[in-house]
């Protein structure tokens, strides 16, 4: 594979997540956007047999891409050539039974304990906050998949000390809180990916821990875009840049019009180093 020299940071995000997807594990992915593209990219390059399901009970589809806008579920292309078609409770039951290893989700905000907000920015009480769609299937994914991968942007407002509203559970208030609230043991947050960094969690404290950064940023740049100081792993790895082969698939098969990856900054290789690019957009 050939390292790319000009790419969108969100393309990099999708590539980074696709590389941690394991063929032997089962996945529940949010209905569209980056989570879906990550697993479809993995299927095409790294884990051809990996299976995923979506919230409407589509089990192991071979989706026909691209989709029409907003046709994330209950559309024939999304559920094409699945092994089984069910309903939302089919998906919920499989997760509750322990059949689903990893959930991949987008989030508006994530905090120190990996809690997820998709309900409101600002105050919920009084109705003056900015409202969003609610947890959808994320509450079930975050509660019952053995591991949860979150995808979001590296921005201070997206990493508050405490999310404005816990729509879906991370570690809640810390060790033991999930079990005390009736969630199955051994489940919970595993990774947070942004275009700039990869985080895990410190086992004992359940706190977010910086593990790796992208080749075009420094640790200080990542920390400057967080409202709290995370734990820092003893060794900070550097994530590989996207490969040309990965970008080819994203651009010609998945996000063909750049609707998802087009936002955010672009990166280029200049004088042997990855830096933010002067030219934005696909060439």
């Amino acid at each position: 594979m050939t390292p790319a020299t000009h790419f969108a940071e969100r393309e990099h995000l999708i590539c980074a997540v696709s590389r941690v997807i394991e063929e032997e594990k089962s996945y529940w992915v949010g209905g569209g956007g980056e989570p879906l593209y990550s697993i479809l990219l993995a299927q095409r390059l790294y884990a051809s047999g990996v299976q995923y399901m979506t919230e409407d009970g589509v089990i192991a589809p071979q989706s026909m891409m691209p989709w029409d806008p907003l046709m994330t579920m209950v559309a024939s292309r999304a559920g094409y050539r699945a092994l089984q078609w069910g309903t939302m409770n089919t998906a919920g039951n499989f997760a509750q039974l322990g059949y689903v290893d990893v959930g991949i989700l987008n989030t508006l905000q994530v905090d120190r304990y990996g809690n997820i907000n998709s309900t409101v920015l600002g105050e919920y009480e009084g109705g003056q906050g900015r409202r969003f769609g609610g947890p959808g299937g994320a509450d079930t994914i975050a509660a019952q998949c053995w591991r949860t991968i979150l995808m979001t942007d590296q921005q201070k407002r997206k990493f508050p000390e405490r999310v404005d509203f816990v729509s879906s559970p991370g570690f809640l208030d810390g060790p033991g809180a999930r079990e005390a609230n009736g969630l199955p043991p051994g489940t919970g947050p595993w990774r947070v990916f942004t275009p700039w960094a990869m985080f895990g969690y410190e086992e004992q404290s359940c706190e977010l821990m910086l593990m790796a950064i992208s080749p075009f940023v420094t640790v200080d740049m990542v920390l400057a875009e967080m409202s709290f100081e995370p734990k820092i792993a003893p060794t900070i790895e550097t994530l590989d840049p996207p490969m040309e082969e990965e970008l080819e698939i994203i651009r010609t098969q998945l996000d063909t019009d750049g609707q998802t990856t087009g936002r955010g900054q672009w990166v280029e290789k200049r004088d042997g180093k990855y830096v933010f690019a002067e030219t934005q957009g696909r060439e």
């Binding site: 309900t119 079930t140 509660a143 019952q144 816990v166 879906s168 999930r178 199955p184």
Partner: peptide
């Protein structure tokens, strides 16, 4: 159900732990 507990939706719902 083995979900929903601990969220901030829970207090705004009819659920009980």
């Amino acid at each position: 159900v083995r979900s929903f507990g601990g969220t901030e939706g829970f207090p705004q719902s009819g659920a009980k732990l």
